[in-house]
Amino acid sequence: MTRPFLAPIAKFQPEDRILGRIGSLEVRLAATHSEIEAAQALRYRVFVEEMGAQLPADAMLQKRDFDRVDRYCDHLLVLDTALTGSTEDQIVGTYRLLRQEVAARHDGFYSQNEFDVMDLVGRSPDKRFLELGRSCVLSTYRIRRTLEALWQGTWAYALGHGIDVMFGCASFPGARPYAHALALSFLNQTAAANDEWNVRAIAGRGLSMDMMPAEAINPRAAIAAMPPLVKGYLRVGAVVSREAVVDTAFRTTDVLVMLPVKQINGRYLNHYGADASRFAA
C-alpha cells in the first residue's frame, strides 16, 4: 500500500498533547500514522462520498484523502471518547494545520495553488502565519459543540506557536460560483480584506465576488446561505479575499479567509480564554 508520508511529520509537543475537552469530546493532535490515516479516511467519507470530490486514483483506491502536504502538517483531531472501539474509531472531526516555518522547509502552503499567499506572507515579514485547511466533521457531529472543540484546539495551538495570522481556503459546495452570488456578494460588501490583507487569486483562476449590487442583497438570507465554517470565521472577525476560485477536483468554490489574531472578536477571546483556558484539558 502506498504510504504518503515522504518526510518527517511536523511535531508540536505541548506538555499535555490534549488541547481541550468539551463533554465527551477531546481535541488533540494526531500522534501516530494510523491516527492520521483515520483522519484521511474521515476526509474521504465527507469530501468524496458526501460531496462528490474526485481525488487522484491512488487516494480513491485507498479511500483516504491524502496529498503531499499531509506529510509535513500537524493534524488536529476531535474525538468522541464516548464511542466504543479504538482511538481511530473515535475521530469525528479534523483540521490540518501548517505553520509558516514548516511550509518554508518543505513544499509550501496548500492554498498557494489557488491564491498568491506568498505575496501576503512576503508583505508581513514580522508576522508568523498558520494555514488552516481540510476542515472536516462527520455529518452527525456538525453541531456547535464540535465546532467549539475545533476552535479550542486551533486557538491553543496558535497561542503555543506565537501565531499572528491564521488563513486558509473556505469552501462553498459546487463548482458553479454564481449559485452562491448572494453569499459571495455579501462577503464582498461586508468582509472584504483591505489592502493590507487582500490576496489575489492565481492568475487566470480568480472570479470577482462583486456579483450583485448592494441594494439587492438581503443580509439575513445571505448569511443563511453560507456554510457553517464561513459563518464561524465571520463571527470571530475574519476577512476574505475579493476573488473566488473554483476547485474542480473537490467541486467547490473557494474563498481565502484571513484572521489576524489581533482582530479576533473580543467576545470569542473571552469565551475560549485569552490563554485558551476555557476548555483546557
Rank of each mutant, 00 (worst) to 15 (best):
E15I: 00
I36G: 02
V102R: 05
I22L: 15
Q112L: 00
V92F: 05
M226A: 05
A281D: 12
Q13F: 09
Q90I: 01
S24F: 01
V102I: 14
R205S: 15
L97F: 09
G168F: 07
G174A: 04
R205T: 13
R142F: 11
D254C: 03
A281Y: 04
H271Q: 11
D210Q: 15
G266W: 02
Q13H: 12
A244K: 04
T2H: 11
L132N: 12
P177V: 13
L138A: 15
A225K: 09
E215F: 08
A225S: 15
R105A: 12
A30H: 00
E26V: 15
R17W: 11
E88S: 12
L147I: 09
P228C: 02
S135W: 02
N188W: 08
D164Q: 05
R242P: 02
G168N: 06
G174E: 07
G153P: 06
K231Y: 10
S24N: 13
L29N: 01
G85E: 09
D65S: 10
L234D: 02
G162T: 11
H106G: 01
A203N: 14
V48F: 05
K262D: 15
W151M: 12
L234W: 01
G133C: 10
R235G: 03
P8V: 08
L130R: 03
L97Q: 06
D164S: 13
W155I: 00
A170L: 13
M212R: 13
Q90L: 00
R278M: 13
F5N: 08
I22A: 10
L259T: 06
R99D: 03
R123H: 11
Q54V: 14
D247N: 09
H161C: 14
K127I: 06
A103M: 07
S277C: 07
L132R: 11
I264V: 15
R134L: 04
D16A: 09
R220F: 00
Y141P: 03
R242N: 14
A274D: 10
A170E: 03
L55I: 08
Y272K: 11
G160Q: 06
L77Y: 08
A39W: 02
E35A: 07
Q112F: 00
S139K: 15
D80C: 09
A156R: 06
E196G: 00
S135G: 14
A53K: 03
I9Y: 07
G52W: 04
